[in-house]
Design a protein around this nucleic acid. Structure first.
Lengths: 226, 226
DNA sequence: AAATGTGAAGAGGTTCACAGCG
DNA sequence: CGCTGTGAACCTCTTCACATTT
């Protein structure tokens, strides 16, 4: 009798939004971010200690206290049994894990309505993130400046960007130009991309890409309404 | 010896972005949307018939042909064995499932940089979606019009919106105002919300909500870079 | 021969239940 | 006692393998 050998599965699709913890466990980064935000709110409200139940209630979204404890336990032992979690300690830990314990410089390519809106949003609302470079191909924009950042020609990206130390790039150009822009950003040293073009970017696996696809989001809503 | 009775699990958290198919199977709406887009591209390129492999290759993202066939089989039998799928038939089917076989009117609340950018994007790029109403609380904006749509005062939302037949609402106001705006939109007949405020909206379960949280997306990237 | 459609196996992620500790 | 931390059970989704059909 012949026993067929099972074919080995592919190791992992490596979707963004999750990552391996200390011992190979998978951690959901979006969830950790929710915890971080919830804890910051609690800190702002004066809480020094929080139980997983209280945090779950604050986050809402049907988050369970068990899920929170499971996730946090992957990062180490923080809670005090019978008491809860020290808010300050946990916020700091999460900030470090999320990479939010330092500031970041962002390069925006495409400074039309969307790029402009994103820049404004980040500059005013997110203190950890700063606009470090802006590129567009509109001659009317190139040479002007925005909040102290000079808008450069997209064609000069390869020359200008490497000096500016931007770890993150935002792609706010039409879909037809997105792949080319992405490649140039990566070549200039950018390691992570937030892509607003409705395109699948093909890049080296080491580059993190998050695509925000408005049409896809809307279709989820229209499906629900149908 | 006592056998403990298993507690019944809660039926389902009912997260958005998925839905039940004909026989209780779960279908991923974001994936169906990717198929729809891929098929439209193929149609535009002149293809009449497409295999699941060809579609997978077109979509990229590590999509597998098996996944595509599994998903499509939930919607009925469309393919011809040995041949592939009829592109036109499948596009139409997916459009109907996604609710993209008709036009939609959208109400935007908050017409600052972001609201304005979204309106422009939708009006120019998405032919199925039209801006049906705009609200803001800035007196300088109220009364002016944008592409034929008069900008109304946010306080008049309850009076103005019910007549305008908008199924979808976009929330582009600060987090502090988001919950209140959401409730008023729902009260005015809007059944689905696209929320750009970093807040968890608490609404009736029948209302579909998609929240796009830029800070969360960025933290996924910073985590990767750390 | 070629590609679909699908039951079954496999992985991955969530929830339970409770031991452990303050 | 209260709440954390966690192995095990459970459930859901993906992938495999192959029968089926053109």
């Amino acid at each position: 009798m012949k026993i067929a050998a099972r074919k080995r599965r592919s190791p992992k699709p490596s979707r963004n939004g999750e990552a391996r913890g200390p011992r190979g466990f998978v951690i959901s980064i979006p969830r950790l971010f929710l915890y971080h935000r919830g804890l910051e709110d609690a800190l702002h409200a004066g809480d020094k200690v929080l139980t997983s139940q209280e945090l779950a209630a604050r986050i809402g979204r049907g988050m369970s206290s068990t899920q929170i404890r499971k996730d946090l336990s992957q990062l180490g032992t923080f809670g005090r049994r019978g008491q809860g979690y020290d808010v300050v300690v946990l916020v700091k830990k999460l900030a470090r894990v999320l990479g939010l314990d330092r500031d970041w410089r962002i390069a925006i390519v495409g400074f039309g309505n969307l790029g402009h809106a994103l820049a404004t949003f980040l500059e005013y609302r997110e203190e950890k993130f700063h606009i470090g470079a802006i590129f567009d191909k509109d001659p009317a924009l190139v040479g002007t400046s925005w909040h102290g950042v000079t808008i450069s020609d997209e064609d000069d990206l390869d020359r200008v960007l490497p000096k500016l130390n931007c770890g993150i790039g935002i792609i706010a150009v039409p879909a037809s130009a997105a792949q080319r822009v992405a490649e140039r950003l990566v070549a200039a040293g950018v390691g992570a991309l937030l892509n607003f073009a409705p395109t699948n970017l093909e890049l080296a696996p080491a580059v993190a890409v998050r695509t925000i696809d408005l049409a896809s989001e809307l279709s989820i809503l229209t499906h629900h309404l149908s």
